[in-house]
């Protein structure tokens, strides 16, 4: 399960909206071993593409070093799909290189409602996991669809 603060969810979706129709990408770092994403780091999509993303290699080094220095790890690695669903593509699965990370996908294909879903990708196997948003404000600016159930913020999925 991914537990994440609502302000970070909003910041990720805002980043994805800002870069639409190109794919947006980034990281949420957290204290090593905590499994808690606390520091949002929007990254440059070096591919600047509507269908592909790649971290800039120098920014990647700088951010990974900074996490190391702060005793953090990449708890969440996110990117957006801008015309398709928030589900890992074969390309995503093939390149997934951080087995400990929550891979978050955001879809901005709908102007009104963003999709926000989280997955584990280990050895080519994708497992969707529930997302629990904490600290949600009463009056959200944007409506979200978490997983398949648009009406709820917390949801359970099988095998989690």
């Amino acid at each position: 399960m991914l537990t994440i603060d609502s302000a970070i969810v909003e910041a990720i979706v805002a980043h994805a909206r800002r870069d639409h129709p190109d794919e947006a990408c980034g990281v949420v770092a957290g204290p090593a071993g905590s499994d808690l994403p606390t520091r949002h780091i929007p990254m440059v999509n070096a591919a600047r593409s509507m269908t592909f993303y790649e971290f800039d290699s120098m920014e990647h080094l700088r951010v990974w070093r900074e996490m190391d220095d702060r005793d953090e790890e990449p708890v969440v690695i996110y990117h957006s799909h801008t015309a398709t669903e928030a589900y890992p593509s074969r390309t995503d699965i093939s390149f997934a290189g951080e087995p400990g990370a929550h891979y978050v996908l955001v879809s901005t294909r709908d102007d009104e409602r963003a999709e926000f879903r989280s997955f584990r990708i280990v050895d080519g196997v994708v497992t969707e996991e529930p997302v629990t948003v904490v600290g949600a404000t009463v009056d959200p600016v944007q409506s979200y669809m978490f997983g398949q159930s648009p009406a709820t913020v917390d949801y359970e999925c099988s095998g989690s």
């Binding site: 971290f55 070093r65 990117h79 593509s89 074969r90 390309t91 995503d92 093939s94 390149f95 951080e98």
Partner: peptide
Amino acid sequence: VTILPAVAGGALGFAAAAAL
């Protein structure tokens, strides 16, 4: 020396990404 697996992906089909 630091080794990092690139962080990459996207909606693009794998065959197209591989070719590109």
